[in-house]
């Protein structure tokens, strides 16, 4: 099972920091997502970006997690050399995570 099967996501950017929400489609999947989608797993899933820090915030009323990924955007949208300087595509990369307990 992939994270994409149980959750949806959107990426935002501020400077060189990306934030990626992970939102359960069904409230009953939220505890599983909390258990499996840890800061460490997200750090591994996005290792290609060499983030300096991953911080997770929990929003139980929304059935959502918010990951703040520092140092991930090649300097940020105004100066990054990347094709996707905002890192808009990163939500899709994160949702490809395997969900194995």
């Amino acid at each position: 099972m992939k994270l994409r099967d149980v959750a949806h996501s959107r990426t935002g950017d501020k400077g060189n920091t990306s934030n990626i929400s992970v939102i359960a489609y069904r409230a009953e999947d939220y505890p599983l997502i909390c258990k499996l989608v840890t800061e460490e797993r997200v750090q591994m899933q996005l290792a290609g970006l060499n983030p300096t820090r991953v911080t997770r915030y929990e929003l139980p009323k929304l059935g959502a997690l918010n990951f703040v990924i520092a140092g991930a955007l090649g300097g940020g949208v105004t100066r990054s050399l990347a094709l996707d300087a905002h890192g808009k595509a990163l939500s899709s990369i994160l949702l490809d995570m395997d969900l194995e307990p």
């Binding site: 950017d13 920091t17 934030n19 929400s21 911080t55 959502a64 703040v68």
Partner: peptide
């Protein structure tokens, strides 16, 4: 609404 609520948010608190 949930996707937009967390868009470009760091610490939601």
């Amino acid at each position: 609404c949930k996707e937009q609520l967390l868009y470009e948010i760091h610490d939601p608190a």
